[in-house]
Amino acid sequence: MSTEFTPWLSFFGGVLIGLAALILMAAHGRIAGISGILSGWLTRTDSSTPINTAFLVGLVLGLPLTALLSSQPISIENDTPFIGMLMAGLFVGYGTVHGSGCTSGHGVCGISRLSARSMVATATFMSTAIVFTFIVRHVFGA
């Protein structure tokens, strides 16, 4: 399904994400990597479980609050079958913890720190996803 290119809204949303990451670093000295925060919370490994919990509660409330304040409908269109979503979740969960980061931790925070590790990771997951999409959509025509 086609989607509308939204440069301004997307840039503005990105600025908010950057602000959120700055607040977490300024207040708690933490990188705003969602996979790290989520896995830390799930496995109770780090000492800052209450901080992780508060962050995740806020994260989950962002969409309903935006829906409440905005007149625009929020679209969430998913055409992947349920079994595919289950497999994808497993891959993303395993991959982001094994590879120490996701789009936020490596893609935003890591690149901003000019970390070579994060740049390599970001280039790897981006190119993998682009090649996978090309094969699925244009070779198999799904």
């Binding site: 991959g95 936020s104 490596h106 390599v120």
Partner: peptide, 24 residues
């Protein structure tokens, strides 16, 4: 780092979701 990113890339493309947006 590389193996994890490849797994992540496949799951991301399959679903269109990464951890942040999925939680949100």
């Amino acid at each position: 780092l590389i193996v994890g990113a490849v797994f992540f890339g496949v799951g991301w493309a399959l679903s269109g979701l990464c951890p942040g947006p999925a939680m949100a």
